[in-house]
């Protein structure tokens, strides 16, 4: 089949007759729209970050970040998520080459990495709660659980999305639509990675100082 990546980047958008409207390039519109969505999400996280910054000393008799955080788990989570970004990139390269089997393979690897990230995070949360430090303990812990948990929820949605993409690539192969969605997914996944870097730096690293 033709290379969908090239199709969307040729000077003449009418070269691909399957585009719904040659006047209107769905690919670039959707990618721009998705970028805008990512910026809204970025601002949502910014709000949670700011709130965390304001509240992180309000421990109300509960543990402080210094007493609570274990950097080794967070570091492991960071490495896993970074690795998953790499494998997600491999999936996209496979998509550009139109190699269905490789897409599925790398998506599966990315999925497993994402899943292990979530499992680690849930385990960390469970550990905190079992020691009696739940989100109801203090404003600091409320902000912590909400910020990190919102990121975790995003990753969970990413896993769901990957499941759908897996099925779509399996049954439909690389089409204009599935290719576009893979590109959007990879933007989403890298974005989550970026947010996690901020969480790792501002919440965990600065938290233990």
């Amino acid at each position: 089949m033709t290379d969908p990546f090239l199709v969307h980047h040729t000077a003449d958008p009418t070269a691909d007759t399957s585009l719904p409207d040659p006047h209107q390039d769905t690919f670039s519109k959707t990618v721009l729209g998705f970028w805008c969505y990512l910026m809204t999400d970025c601002l949502l996280f910014a709000t949670l970050f700011i709130t965390y910054a304001v509240l992180h000393n309000n421990t109300f008799g509960g543990p402080s970040s210094k007493e609570l955080f274990d950097l080794s788990t967070a570091f492991l989570e960071t490495m896993i998520l970074l690795a998953s970004s790499v494998t997600c990139g491999f999936a996209l390269i496979a998509a550009v080459k139109g190699n269905n089997r490789n897409i599925l393979f790398w998506l599966a690897i990315t999925f497993l990495l994402g899943l292990s990230f979530i499992i680690l995070e849930i385990d960390e949360f469970r550990h905190f709660v079992s020691e009696g430090h739940s989100w109801t303990t203090s404003a600091f812990l409320s902000a912590f659980f909400t910020l990190v948990g919102t990121h975790g929820l995003h990753v969970t949605f990413g896993l769901l999305w990957m499941g759908v993409m897996f099925a779509q690539v399996y049954w439909q192969g690389v089409t204009i639509d599935t290719f576009r969605r893979l590109v959007l997914f990879s933007l989403f996944w890298h974005f989550l990675d970026l947010i996690w870097i901020f969480i790792f730096t501002f919440v965990y690293l600065l938290g233990v100082i």
Partner: peptide
């Protein structure tokens, strides 16, 4: 989450602001 899960973002107690 303040209202449903008992968190303390904006409550008067619990260190909320």
């Amino acid at each position: 989450v303040d209202r449903y899960l008992g968190m303390h973002f904006f409550t008067a107690g619990g260190g909320g602001n």
